[in-house]
Design a protein around this nucleic acid. Structure first.
Lengths: 371, 371
DNA sequence: TTGCGCGATGGTAGCGCTGCCATTATGGTT
DNA sequence: AACCATAATGGCAGCGCTACCATCGCGCAA
């Protein structure tokens, strides 16, 4: 290694002396150009280009007590729901100096608490966190973080600061309504495990069936612990707990335990896909003998044979909007809207369309038909 | 805002004076505990706990010219191949102070160059980057980054420092061999777009068919530009270019243009899934009339009806090993092995198993059979 | 006894940047 | 003409930590 001093990167004062100005003016030209006269700005820009100067972000973060890292807390890195969200967040930071640091809570509030306690001390520029089920401690740390905090993928009357998402309860309700309208009467709910958000969907399902006097608690078919606390993670290194294989097994189980069911509402498209394969292997006709609906509307739902109905949720947009909100506030803006509902769409496809549907008068909110 | 000074976080010198030692000793106790006597260490630990002291990472990064951020460069955030890899990387940093910053190159060398130039100046602890097709400039920046650099998801004779992955060429070759052995003669290659790594698979496919005197260049069915340079990205906000729907369309096209094909090797499982649905909708029997093979071995391949053959690649492990290598070197270790081949497995499933396979004497390298 | 190597500890001087306040110039107001 | 608000710029003093070198004491060889 050669001498540090001589060949190390140019600093802000190198630029300043080349441009013949004070260091602070260079700093200002970089961060608040409108506060520097155009003439000087030009001189400084030239000097920067000439020296190939790049600011040291660590120094900046230390001096300003604020970094340009946006921390993103999600329950799972591998579920495509969340990768789409992250993608939206990432796309939202284009043309900004912001960076993202991703952390995985594994659906575990304790892990989340731990991560937040670490993250908060890094002085992040902002924090984006999934859902509303933070522990009290976590919530308080986030409140005191001193930076914008945006919750995503759910709704709440009482956001930490701001929340962007949709109602899982309402989505579950609407999809179940659709099934009822199509004439299905014995509708099972298939799930691998119930996260807080999954439970919302289940509640919506129950509400819709209660309304139609069709609810039967025994039609909930699930795997793993029914508790809301611990995570079902078995992702490490291999198969995820939430898999098409699991959907297939749940479907077999459902048909065996309740031969009279005429539809299944799957908590996740991956399960719906597995359920479809199960039906195919058993020669159970979809949608004639059995209707199948999923949740998320992954791309293969439309391509399936038959095309599978699902609830399209705006994952990418959710992330993107969250980032937009963050940037707005980082630019000094106020919170316009503490709760932003980005909605969802019920994608009615062949897998739940029976020959003779009931009159489709109701069920209009947040609906759309694909193709 | 109250006075900064009074209520701000405790610093290292607060700890030092409470413990009655020099600040530097506290610093040392934190980073190189073995250099501090056990007695003092205890006193310092107590002081830390009492004050609830947490080091300021920005200050540390500035002073040491080294942060604890591991930069991860991947071509796509949404393809589950890469989310699995990221998950592996993430799992690999457990119990370390390291964090990950994810950046998305979108398969574009220019974007990659840009990202690297920014990242390098943040003084990351390490850089993990996908593939071997960096531009010359990018490569040079990485060489000069002054931190561990690990390439992943491919192999090369000439890694920047270290590479962990597998041979796409060999994988394509082995899978195609398997198809030939099963008696398939007119094997099409379906792809949405050819990344550098996809091209490797295609080469392997060609090699295997050449050997068997079965190669026919017209059986390459692809969509989008055939060029290797530009990215096919249309992910933003909606459907990905690489989708089951695309696989379905490619399958239709293949059957129309080449009614005599008896198998398809899909560059990606998502395409294979779409191809299966296309066959189902056309009443084309799989594997009797048509064999289908995919690549990646996503979880639904095994669950499909019929179960779909694929090349299982060790995505999670690849990320995990990369992180392990990084940590080894951050701990002062040398590079043990510049090139680490983690292999792959040919998963032979029903979708490519014909009634009368040829004697399965050959094709033994890196093989495994599921179920 | 002297000297020396070595482990343990501390002091000093920044790392490169920005917050705060001061200073100067400018132009309009009374 | 005196005054003042405002814009443009700069100086100083750290932000909290670590690199570097110095120091101290102790045990052991000569």
């Amino acid at each position: 290694m050669a001498k540090r001093r001589s060949n190390s990167r140019p600093t802000i004062s190198d630029v300043a002396s080349l441009a013949g100005v004070g260091a602070i003016t260079v700093s200002r030209a970089l961060r608040e150009p409108q506060k520097v006269s155009p003439a000087l700005r030009k001189v400084i820009d030239d000097a920067i280009r000439q020296l190939n100067y790049v600011p040291d972000l660590n120094a900046r973060a230390l001096a300003s007590k604020r970094s340009d890292v946006v921390a993103v807390l999600i329950p799972s890195l591998t579920q495509s729901v969340f990768s789409d969200v992250v993608r939206g967040i990432y796309d939202g930071l284009a043309d900004s100096p912001l960076r993202i640091e991703v952390a995985n809570t594994g659906y575990d509030p304790d892990i989340e608490e731990n991560l937040v306690s670490r993250i908060v001390r890094h002085q992040p520029a902002a924090i984006i966190v999934s859902g509303t089920d933070q522990s009290a401690t976590t919530r308080q740390m986030l409140e005191n973080a001193g930076c914008p905090v945006v919750q995503i993928m759910d709704l709440s009357d009482n956001p930490i600061q701001q929340i962007i998402g949709f109602s899982h309860e309402e989505a579950g309700y609407q999809m179940t309504r659709h099934l009822v309208q199509q004439g299905y009467r014995r509708i099972a709910f298939l799930t691998a495990w119930l996260s807080t958000r999954s439970s919302g969907r289940l509640h919506g399902y129950k509400r819709a069936l209660d309304e139609a006097n069709l609810y039967d608690a025994s039609l909930l078919v699930q795997r793993g612990s029914a508790s809301t606390t611990p995570p079902p993670i078995a992702e490490q290194g291999g198969r995820s707990f939430l898999s098409a294989q699991m959907g297939k097994e749940l479907m077999y189980e459902a048909l065996e335990r309740h031969p009279d069911i005429d539809a299944v509402f799957c908590n996740n498209d991956v399960l719906a896909l597995g359920a479809l394969f199960a039906c195919q292997s058993l020669g159970v006709h979809v949608p004639g003998r059995l209707g199948i609906a999923g949740f998320n509307d992954f791309d293969y739902m439309e391509a399936a044979h038959p095309p599978l109905s699902s609830v399209r949720i705006h994952r990418w947009r959710c992330g993107y909007e969250a980032m937009t909100a963050v940037r707005h506030r980082l630019d000094g803006g106020e919170i316009d809207q503490a709760v932003i509902d980005i909605g969802f769409d019920i994608m009615e496809r062949e897998s739940t369309l029976r020959a003779k549907p009931l009159p489709a008068s109701a069920a209009t909110i947040g609906m759309a038909v694909s193709d």
